[in-house]
Design a protein around this nucleic acid. Sequence first.
RNA 1: GGCCCGUUGGUGAAGCGGUUAACACACCAGCCUUUCACGCUGGCAUACAGGGGUUCGAAUCCCCUACGGGUCACCA
Length: 482
Amino acid sequence: MTVRVRFAPSPTGHLHFGGARTALFNYLFAKKHKGTYILRIEDTDTTRNKENAEERLIEAFKWLELTWDEGPDIGGNFGPYRSMERLDIYHKYIHQLLATKQAYPCYCTREELEAEREHMISQGKMPRYSGKCRHLTESDRKTYELEGRSFTIRFKVPSQKTLTFKDMIRGAVTFESEDIEDFVILKSDGIPTYHFAVTVDDALMKITHVIRGEEHLSNTPKHLLLFGAFGFQLPEFGHIPLILNESGKKLSKRDESILQFIEQYRDLGYLPKAVINYLTLLGWSPGGEFSEQEIFSKDQLTELFSMDRVSKAGAIFDPDKLAWMNGQYIKTADPKKIVELAIPYLKNDGLFNEDKPVTWYEELVTLYQDRMNCISEITQLARIFFDKDMNYNQDAKEILTTESSLIVLKKVKELISTMDEYTPNTIKKLLKDVQKATGFKGKKLFMPVRVATTGAVQGPDLNTVLYLLGKETVVDRIEQVI
RNA sequence: GGCCCGUUGGUGAAGCGGUUAACACACCAGCCUUUCACGCUGGCAUACAGGGGUUCGAAUCCCCUACGGGUCACCA
């Protein structure tokens, strides 16, 4: 049996961490077992579908380099891969349930249901559909039809049935059918509900393992019932723990206090490999000889991944650790790649002048490569190279006003004008000469130069900084403070 | 509230009947460096939710309680 798994999002917004990780686990599981990974769009909630959501979703996945073997954009042998293009299929199966009396039309209006619900709550009971339309006679139905009432189709949930399945992560999970109401499978607009679409699709697409978020755990008995009603072969289920926010709640798309959309991280200059690495470790760990390792390539993850090492408890998302991990990837990346990624940020902030050679930018970005946790930080880091006016804070002013500083700076200015070749190496020699001439060394020598030319008391290698700044700028800035 | 699931330091987690209970992030200190960062070294942390069992021995197995989360729609 070849493994077939799917990620089945609804096109209602941007791809967030929870969805991305569910997709990722499906992907890794498929690759691990040399199986097929499918993207399917569950767009049955036509009121919540967003215009470009599917394109955005696909774009985000492409960025993450999580590609599928079958999907709405590339097709496959089990299509179509959008629910709304499968309406005929669903209707056929709805009819089958109707014909075998495993489902029935319900003519209750929303208002009636709402009133019923409130009544039950007022009596201290749990709101639950009474199942009254189950018992409608043929003539009752005729009457309603003639009234032009719209209807839904509900599934007839059998009574006193114990529903058990073996979850790949949690082991045996049991529900009682008594606790499940006759749920709607076809909405009054003729579109099936999620529960119906998902089971029919999973069965017809020959999905072998349903790997999804824990929020679906309590939906599973409904799906079990539906699978049973059709005599479909049951897939295995694995419910992965939720990703939680700082306060331990499920990550909500509406929560703006936290960045949780893949696109946001892409825009900040996170590397997809880092995001994949971090997300995989959120709720899963390789254990054994790899339990002390944090950085994994996708190939390694694919090889190591297994569902039985997915943890059961929800995991709180830690942006700091993601940032650290991204920093690790940036530090070890090919400098050329980082330069390429950084230039758009510089351009965007107006820090890219065509008159400067590309090599200058390459050296600039490389200078900061191991100081960045994400690429967008380059614009802040490299700001000192583009500022027109220097801002000196208290620390800087103190350094600049000492007598030794002035002596050093004057000497630098004097000697720099005599330089023919202006490179990090010759600058190094220059500073050496200044040391000899003034007698100041160490902090007393370097600090004034750094502060005068960059405005900061800290920063990367001074020789390179002075070189990249250019002789003129260095002289200009020194003149302004002496 | 019913049902379901869960509970190892602030966070991610290792551990699967016998350990001084790893490792990583964060935090702190030292070293390195002209400085900062990187890196290295070390440290901090009231960590096995609580209570009963089972066992010679429980973080590990069982039960109860507490707490947390998920879910109860013509949403997915």
